[in-house]
């Protein structure tokens, strides 16, 4: 069963690869083209093998987790992830051909990414895989010394 950290990092990787595809960023096609493949293939694989199993097993805690804010953020993550997966599948199979529905799918797929990341960070809180970097940045001490203190 994938760990929290694995799921979290997977979502970060998928989000980052997707953000690099945003045309508002000056990313050359030489970078964007392989990133497009990575985002689609990697995102599909990680979603199927890492995120989905974790979600299936983890969602029982929607009723039991404490505090209640965690249940709320979890619910939101669930909704946003569902929209991202659905819009992603739409963009892949139907295409972003400029029609209104494709434009909506594209907008959802792009603009829900940052909220997802924010909610995710709130949801995992101290259990975040990013805590290592956070504490190092704050205290400027190696983790081992943090633990000893």
């Amino acid at each position: 069963m994938p760990s929290v950290g694995q799921v979290e990092l997977s979502l970060y990787a998928i989000a980052l690869s997707g953000l690099l595809l945003w045309e508002g960023l000056p990313v050359s096609w030489r970078v964007a083209a392989p990133m497009l493949v990575a985002h689609i293939v990697g995102g599909t694989v990680l979603t199927v093998l890492v995120v989905a199993p974790f979600w299936w097993q983890h969602r029982v805690r929607l009723r039991t987790a404490a505090p209640s804010t965690r249940r709320a953020t979890g619910r939101w993550i669930e909704i946003v992830l569902a929209l991202l997966v659905a819009s992603g599948f739409y963009l892949f199979f139907a295409g972003n051909d400029g029609a209104s529905d494709a434009a909506l799918a594209h907008a959802l797929h792009l603009w829900l990414t940052l909220p997802l990341l924010a909610i995710l960070v709130l949801h995992v809180a101290r259990a975040s895989a990013l805590r290592v970097f956070w504490y190092r940045a704050r205290r400027r001490r190696p983790l081992s010394r943090l633990r000893s203190s």
């Binding site: 964007a32 083209a33 497009l36 689609i40 892949f92 199979f93 972003n96």
Partner: peptide
């Protein structure tokens, strides 16, 4: 020309995949 991955592939599956890439991000 800016090319999409697998555009010129001899594999039909990869060419199909390339068409999906074009469709998902057609601006280039």
């Amino acid at each position: 020309r800016e090319r999409y991955p697998f555009e010129a592939s001899s594999s039909a599956i990869l060419r199909w995949f390339s068409e999906r890439l074009i469709a998902s991000r057609p601006s280039v």
